[in-house]
Structure formats: C-alpha cells, structure tokens
C-alpha cells in the first residue's frame, strides 16, 4: 500500500512579503470594520428574538446630519441621504442595508423614478440574498450540519456619492455578500439634473463614445507597468465591453470614470479597474 505524503506541500516556499501582507490586511480589516455592527448586534442579541427587523429613520443620525452640513447650500442643489436603514439578523443571515434617496433636484418625476428604482433594486437584492441564504442553510442542515456550526451569511448594501452638483448627480450602490458566489456588485447612477435623465456614456460623450472610451482605456492600459499588465486577461477586447450599460460614474472634475469589476478584464488579484476618460 502506497502512502500519501504532503512533502511537496510543506515545501511550498513562503514569500518574504507574507508577514507584511498579513499585517497590512489585519490593519485594513480592523480599520474598515464598522463599529456600528458590533453595537447593533449586542442590542439585537439581548432581544433574543428569532427574527428582528429594525428600521431607523436617519433624520436623527448625527453622521448624516454632518454630511448634509458639508453640502454648500447654493440654490437648487440635489441631496442624497439615507432614507432607511434595515438591519435584520437571524440564524441564517446577517443583513445590513442603507437605502439612499435623492431629493431636491427640482425634478420630482426624476426623483420618484430613481428612488423607486433604487428601492425596488434593493428589495430584490435583499429577497434574492434571503432566498440564497435559506437554500444554503437548508442544504447545510439537510446534509447533517447542525445549526450551531452554521455561520450566517452576511449581506451588506451601502452607497457612495461620487459627485453632487447643480448639473449632475453621480452615485454608486454596492452590495457585498459573504460566502456566496458573487462578492461585491455595483450599481451606478448618473443623473443629468437639467434634463432629468439617467445618463449613459453615450449621453456624456456623444455617438462616437465607443471609440473614444476604448481608445482612452487602451492608452491607459498601455501605460501600465509590466507587473500590472501580467494581470490583464490575454484576450480582452475593450471595445466589445463598451456599450450603453457600461458602468461608470462622474468624478469631481466632471469626467466619466469607467469601472470594471474584479475579474472583468484582469485577474482578481488586480482588483477593480477604473479608467478616467479625460480629454
């Protein structure tokens, strides 16, 4: 009978950078961990209920108040603020959601449309996440796992404002799901306040947008250093990825920034790729 050895495995060389990488990751992980989670969790656990939904209206939230405070009040400027926070926790999953709302654009149709879309998008994401978590949990139990061994799936939805101005509003809603197939998903919203339209790259750059954007991106990729180029997938055709649904936001220089998610054009190690399309 032959024996299985793990000699080769044990001899995998450990790179000298490992320790530094680990310490950096520890640092980053500890810093980005949201203290709010821990606090909320304690309160919820003490309630000891199986299903708890807490909904907080944010008008009282001091961080949002201070965020609003920083927005200069010049005429008719749009606001984006958290209308609702949902926190839900049970044995199966751990959900933490912030729902943004846009207002004061002077275009109530537009606001209604966008806000409705946002809330239905988030509802759908939560529902899908719940279904996935339930299926996962059931499969876990059905195959002999015990509820004690199960680690709830964490779902987090939040948003980030990229630009807010009299002319444009640009923000991204992101969803992060732990232990599921997809991790972070982004939804970008770029609104032309004057026309009341949700903008695409075409609206921004004109009918030649495909050529413009692919050329700019290819130029920037050509400028990457060799190490970074290694991560690029060999058969990437940028122009085939540029269309009216291409993800982008508008930065504070009023330039569109095209975003490719992890694994879209590069190996995951290279992370999310952003390309600013400037003149």
């Amino acid at each position: 009978m032959k024996k299985i050895t793990n000699d080769k495995y044990k001899n995998i060389p450990i790179p000298s950078e490992l320790n530094e990488c680990v310490e950096n990751a520890l640092d980053y992980g500890l810093k980005t961990h949201n203290k709010r989670f821990a606090a909320t969790k304690k309160i919820l656990l003490s309630a000891a209920a199986f299903f708890i939904i807490s909904v907080t209206l944010i008008n009282t939230n001091s961080t949002i108040a201070s965020a609003l405070y920083q927005i200069p009040v010049i005429g008719n400027i749009a606001h984006i603020f958290t209308i609702q926070e949902i926190h839900k926790e049970d044995d199966i999953q751990y959900i933490d959601v912030k729902i943004p709302k846009i207002e004061n654009t002077g275009k109530s149709d537009l606001e209604q449309r966008v806000n409705l879309e946002i809330s239905s998008l988030i509802d759908k994401e939560i529902q899908n996440a719940q279904t996935r978590a339930k299926e996962y949990y059931d499969a876990f139990i059905a195959t002999g796992g015990t509820p004690e061994e199960y680690h709830p799936i964490a779902v987090q939805i939040d948003y980030e404002i990229k630009l807010i101005d009299e002319k444009y509003v640009s923000f991204v809603i992101w969803k992060n799901e732990t232990l599921a197939s997809a991790y972070t998903t982004f939804y970008f919203y770029n609104i032309d306040v004057e026309s009341g339209r949700v903008m695409t790259l075409k609206d921004f750059l004109g009918p030649q947008y495909k050529e413009i954007v692919s050329q700019k991106i290819n130029e920037q990729i050509a400028d990457w250093d060799e190490d970074k180029k290694m991560y690029l997938f060999p058969d990437v055709d940028i122009s085939s990825l540029i269309n009216e649904n291409t993800k982008f936001y508008i930065d504070t220089d009023f330039k569109p920034v095209v975003v490719f998610e992890k694994y879209e054009i590069t190996a995951g190690a290279a992370g999310i790729q952003e390309f600013k399309i400037s003149d």
Binding site: P15, H33, H151, P152, I153
Partner: peptide
C-alpha cells in the same frame, strides 16, 4: 498573497457574524 490578504480583510470585516 492577494487571496490571503482578501481573506483576512473579509474575516475581520465580517467577524461580527461569527
């Protein structure tokens, strides 16, 4: 290395679920 880093960050960011 990248995967180890991502893993550590995820472990820490989600440690409240453990």
């Amino acid at each position: 290395l990248d995967i180890v880093q991502d893993t550590i960050v995820k472990v820490l960011q989600n440690r409240h679920t453990l």
